[in-house]
Amino acid sequence: MAIGLEHFLILSAILFSIGLYGALAKRNAVVILMSIEIMLNAVNIAMVAFWHYSAPMLMTGQIFVIFIMVVAAAEAAVGLALIIAIYRSRDTVDAEKFNLMKW
């Protein structure tokens, strides 16, 4: 069977779902961040697959991926800095212990 666009897209979907589960179900904040990175990677795969199969003459797909990588990097940096700062003040990175996001 030839590998078609759907295969990559389904791969992307599976990866995204795994990342989603991890983001919602894990308690360690660093693991949540890792799951988010997985989700971003899934999106990247989908982007490149679209580029390859639907519009290979334009580079737009790859440009998009580059920018996603840039943003992911920036976000990872800031996110981990936040986690370290929280660890310093509360001595824990358990997401269930952070409940200040209410009125």
Partner: peptide, 14 residues
């Protein structure tokens, strides 16, 4: 419903 916890909110969003 307002737990203040990030993951609960994320679940609700999805």
């Amino acid at each position: 419903a307002e737990t203040g916890q990030l993951q609960a909110y994320g679940l609700a969003i999805f």
